[in-house]
Every structure is written in structure tokens, then in C-alpha cells.
Write a protein that binds this DNA or RNA. Structure first.
Lengths: 369, 369
DNA sequence: CTGTTAGCGCATTCAC
DNA sequence: GTGAATGCGCTAACAG
């Protein structure tokens, strides 16, 4: 038998013995003693106030206040075997798409009376596994992952944990057992490359995350490559600029990553005639740099982004980009958790949403075409 | 006696009775039964493996695997009265500064084996209070708040909870009892206004958050106003553009907020000669719009930002802005929690960091001065 | 309306 | 090495 999904404790347990905190907690029992009622009556005052006579309730509340009582929600979950947490594991805090996910998740969480555990992996597979296990051990109702490493993606047993459904969002996924809600990045990337090729571009640069580590970047990279190949265009490794803005903790600013990438691209021996950026933010950085060099977009250089923000329609030239239905992904995430809450833990729950190529003004045929 | 800090349960308790989840959890006892050992031996295999004979340990681990056992970290905290959580309450997911906070917090959390509870208030005072109480009830070791409403700020009892230290970050604070690590936004705003005034500007616009709600925006607004007053310049209400990008869930993009604000400003009956933006991102939006209108910055219009990002030095003209020591705030946050961990729960812990006026190319004297 | 009993799952203390 | 007993703080089920 291979290793199954097994969650063992993984905390540093040996270290917090410095401060024994002799401060005994105030418990319901103490309130009960003070009020000459039973413990459970105290509990009821808080959880089902209507079941307690107003006068008794009043006395209990006053006593609680006086003692500085704090309700222990952790103990409560034990008692009612309630699961109050939802885990959200992000590969990086950098991604702006993450915001809309966060926002949507939060609103659901609020409605359902849940709370959010947030972890950041910086695309470390080890961190991913650790966090998944941790959140499972906190009895998470489910875990949402936004971005995943190729390595963790292989660990199906971990991702298919029975006790805690895991949902991958942002990207659709090749493994039909794994829950996901997202778009087909491979296809989007393929199509965008195709779009440029049809303009006549043969020398297309790509700014891309670590495709040796990140599942998403790998898919994006592959879509680009396959598209080139399909049209009989030689793949040039030097045309792929790797950004590790996911990983690099110093490099906080996506726009600046795009800026710097463009600098590299413009210094390539054979200068590309088109550049693909992961998102509008990166593209803006690239655009700013290009224009500062006195080059015209799209006459001298075509620029596209692979993920639209509201910004892209306003800058000049407006950006050709790909619309990702973020709101839909967000509401699917909510649906997923609603299914969990109604008792049917999803499995093989796959929602693949279409992307849309938004054509604007940042592309043209290459000059020498 | 006034209301003290009292934490009562605040969950929607009446709703999760749909799915009774008859699936009994696998517990240590079951593993124990299967292995013909006692419960505690099982526990030890996980927590102090070295205290268990290798052969026994092996058997137990196998049984655990076979049964699909999941360690219940919540129950564990009860047993060892360990506090595994840190709360982070953000007023909005929009703010980019939030990223660096998050990053720093996460790294500390990782080192200390803690986990992060994240909540978003969208500057609703009610949400703030609810989340604070919730996190306290989850036995949070401490709570970090990034941004706070004026209303909650008044609730000193809540903020000075003994069981759970609360740290306000980003801004320094006028109440000497309240823990904080941040910069004096009032002063920064005052100085920036002063800087523009000394150029000869008399008609200065300000883009600002809801200063009737947000503590930070209120301070920023006041600094601007007091500076004008000090130099004998009449305050013009129409020169203050309010952005509620904190609140508005649809408006995801800060750059676009700046863009739109600038549009309003340029249409003001008496057009300002200088505009102050909350951050570089807003300012970039404003700048883009200004330039698109055929106006020159800084000749026709001076633009400043009140919070520097890496971007500001690259765009043209480069932005005059204010450097906020984000990294220092982040490490102070860590310090704060280290003090909690070493047993001295901070109180009146105030770290006020200096800001720096970064002068670049986006300001000039007004044309008609 | 209130109390009794039992249990949630694990950890600690002390024995053996 | 291993085990028994007890406690963590709260809740559910059933009684009265």
C-alpha cells in the first residue's frame, strides 16, 4: 500500500515552553459558580439566549463581564464538531487577481459565519504541503488553492483528501479527479500566440513565471511553444524571459517586473517584434519602458497581456489582452463551498470557464513583414 | 460600570443543521484499539516519537494510515492551551501596502509555527468589531489591524483587550494606550502640502479616502487642511475628491481610481495647479489621464503621491512622493509578536517611524505664479 | 426554563 | 517504554 493521505502534526512543538502563561482562563464554570447556576445555563445564555429566563441571563451576562470572560470558540468547535475554517493557500501575494478571489471568498465566509486561514507559499512545494496538512488539521471545511507547484500537483493523494476537499482556482486542470474552477491557460496562451503569428510576427517574446515550478506558468509556456511549433516557427529560448516575482520577496512591484523584462527584451540580439506579458500590470511596465526608449507601440513593437485588468482599456495604446472571468471563478468558489456545506463533498468538481480575447490597439503587423 | 471588553459568541449558529455529518471522525482511540496500545501512546507517536519504541511506532503509524486518521489540531490547542493563531484585519484588500505587511507577517508566522486568520472589513466598523471579537474567541495570540475606522478607534475597551493584544499598523496613533507601529500620516500630509505651497501653489487638490470613516484618511485630510490654513490659503471643499476604493467592491483598480479622480479635477471650475494622491498607483492613474489631455506635468500641473512604490522613480516625470518605511513596520510587527511570545504582552507599545519626502520631477511652480 | 450526564479529541502528570 | 486518570472548555441529549 502506497502512502495515503495522512495528516500528522507538523508544528514546532518544542519551542513555546518559555512562557507558561500561568493566567488561568475564565471559564463558564466560574460564571456559573458566581451566579449559582449550572455551567450549561451559562453556555445557553450565549448560544441560545432565548432559552434562558431574562433575569437569569442578565445576571450571567453581568458576571461574565465582571470576570472578563472570553468565549472559547476553539473549545466550542470540539463540542459541536463544527468546522469554522476555510483555508486559502496562495502562491504569492503579488498577483492582483488574488484580490478578487480574496474579496469573493471573504464575502462568502462572512455569510456562512466561517473564517479564513490564509497562507502564502511563494511557490514552494514544501510550504504548500505543509499548509495543506495544517489546514486539514485545523479541520478546515475546504481549501482553496490559487496557484500550485508542479510538484504538489503530482501528489494526488494529498489533493484528493477525503476529509477536506481542495479546490484549485484560476486554472483548469488536466487531472479529472482534481477539483478546479478556472480557465484554460494553455489554450489562452496558444491563441494569443496564434493571434500574433497571424499578424506576421515570427519573433515573439514571452514573459513568464518559473515554468519549471509553477503549474500555471508551465501551461502558459507550453501553449506559447506549441503554437509556435504548429506554425513552423522555431522556438528561441532567449525569447522567454523568466520572472520570479512570485518568489522574490524583494521585488514587490509587478509593473517594475514588466519594465525590467522589457529592458532585457529590447536588448536581445535579434529584437522581437511582439511581446507577451502575463498580465496588464506587467504589460504596463513593458509599455512604459518601450515608450521611454522612443519606440512606438504597436508600430515598432506589439504588446499583449494575458490577463486583463480594468487598466488596460485606458492606457495608450490600449492593450490587447485576455479577459478572465474572475467574478465567475469567485462565485464558483462560493458554489463549491455551498456544496460542501450542504453535505455533498465535491469530487472531480471541474468548472472550466472560457476566456475572451480582447482586441485593442497594442498590436500591428511587424514593420518588416 | 461601563461595558468592559467582553467577548461573546457571534456566529450564525442556527444554520448549519442541514448536514449532520454522521461520519464519525477517526480518533487516536481507534488507532489505539487497533494496535492494542493505549490512547496516549498513539498521541506520543505523533508528538514525541522518540519516546515510543520504533516497532510500536511503526505499527501505530500504519494503523493511522489505514484508518485515514487526521490529527485534530483544534483539540490539541485545548489540551495544551496553545494559541496557534494570529489575526490580521485589513480595511481593504485594495491597498498595495498591504502586500508587504502580509509578506512580513507570513514569514514570522511560518517561523513561529503560527497560522494567520485574515479578515477584510471594507472599512465597516461593524465588521471590524465582529472580526476582533471572533479572533479573540479563536484565542488569537494577537491581532494586527491595518487601517481602522474612526468609530472603532474610539472603542478603547475593545482595542485594549487584555487577552489579546491588538496592534495598529501603518499609522501612528493619537491615543497613547493603543499599540501601534506606523508613520505620522498627518505630518506627512501637512509637509507635502507645505511643499507645494512653497512652490507657489494656492489651488491644490487632494484625492483622499473617506475621511468621515477612515482614521487614516481623516488624518491625511486634516494635515492637508491645517497646512493650507497655516499658510492662509482658503480651503475649497470642491478640491477634495473622495475615493471610496476601500469600500467599493466593484472598483478593484487603484490606478483607475486615480485616473477618474483626475478627470474630475481637470473639470473643476477653477482648475487646481497641483494634485496630491494617496499613493503612486493613484498618481499614475492621474498622470496618465493628465498626459492624455495634452497637459504637461509638471509644467501645467504638479502631481505628488503620498506613498511611494518602486514604480514612482521610473515613470516620466518621476514622482515626488513620500517614502514610508514599510519594511520597518513589518519588522516591528514581528517584534511585537515576539514580545507576546516571550510572555510580556505589550501595552502602550508605540513605534512611530519617520517618513521621507522624496523629491523628484513631478512638481514645479504654477505657471501663473 | 434549568440541571445532569456524557462526550468532543488530545495533552499533561504521574505512576508502573 | 507504556498506561491510568484527569483536565482543557464547551455542547448535545435527555431529563426534570
Amino acid at each position: 500500500m502506497k502512502e495515503k493521505s495522512l495528516s500528522l502534526p507538523s508544528f514546532p512543538t518544542t519551542q513555546r515552553e518559555r512562557a507558561p502563561r500561568p493566567t488561568k482562563n475564565v471559564t463558564m464554570q466560574q460564571i456559573a459558580d458566581l451566579c449559582h447556576v449550572s455551567k450549561i445555563t451559562v453556555g445557553r445564555t450565549f448560544l441560545h439566549p432565548e432559552q434562558v429566563r431574562p433575569r437569569t441571563r442578565q445576571r450571567i451576562l453581568e458576571a461574565a463581564e465582571k470576570l472578563g470572560y472570553t468565549y472559547n470558540a476553539l473549545a466550542a468547535t470540539l463540542g459541536q464538531s463544527r468546522k469554522p475554517f476555510v483555508g486559502l493557500i496562495a502562491s504569492s501575494g503579488n498577483d492582483s487577481q488574488f484580490k478578487s478571489i480574496l474579496r469573493a471568498t471573504q464575502s462568502m465566509i462572512r455569510e456562512e459565519g466561517l473564517d479564513l486561514l490564509l497562507g502564502n507559499t511563494e511557490l514552494s512545494s514544501q510550504q504548500e504541503k505543509l499548509l495543506i496538512n495544517r489546514y486539514i488539521q485545523y479541520q478546515a471545511l475546504g481549501i482553496v488553492m490559487y496557484g500550485i507547484t508542479l510538484e504538489t500537483f503530482q501528489q494526488r493523494q494529498l489533493l484528493l483528501n477525503a476529509a477536506c476537499p481542495i479546490l484549485l482556482i484560476g486554472d483548469s486542470v488536466t487531472d479529472s479527479k482534481i477539483n478546479c474552477a478556472g480557465v484554460d491557460i494553455y489554450k489562452a496562451s496558444y491563441q494569443m500566440t496564434e493571434y500574433l503569428i497571424r499578424f506576421g510576427h515570427r519573433n515573439i517574446a514571452l514573459l513568464c513565471g518559473r515554468h519549471d515550478i509553477s503549474y500555471r506558468s508551465a501551461r502558459r509556456f507550453q501553449g506559447y511553444r506549441d503554437s509556435l511549433e504548429h506554425y513552423g516557427i522555431a522556438f528561441r529560448p532567449e525569447n522567454v524571459i523568466i520572472t520570479d516575482s512570485d518568489l522574490n520577496t524583494r521585488e514587490n512591484d509587478i509593473i517594475s517586473s514588466g519594465y525590467q523584462a522589457m529592458d532585457k527584451i529590447l536588448h536581445l540580439p535579434s529584437r522581437p517584434t511582439a511581446v507577451m506579458f502575463p498580465s496588464d500590470m506587467f504589460a504596463l511596465g513593458g509599455l512604459l519602458h518601450t515608450q521611454m526608449q522612443g519606440l512606438d507601440v504597436p508600430r515598432d513593437l506589439s504588446i499583449v497581456s494575458m490577463h486583463e485588468y480594468t487598466l488596460s482599456s485606458w492606457i495608450r495604446p490600449s492593450l490587447t489582452t485576455i479577459r478572465v472571468p474572475e467574478e465567475d471563478i469567485a462565485s464558483l468558489t462560493i458554489d463549491f463551498f455551498r456544496e460542501i456545506l450542504t453535505g455533498s463533498p465535491p469530487s472531480g468538481w471541474q468548472k472550466i470557464l472560457p476566456t475572451e480575447l480582447v482586441i485593442r490597439d497594442s498590436c500591428a503587423a511587424p514593420r518588416n513583414a
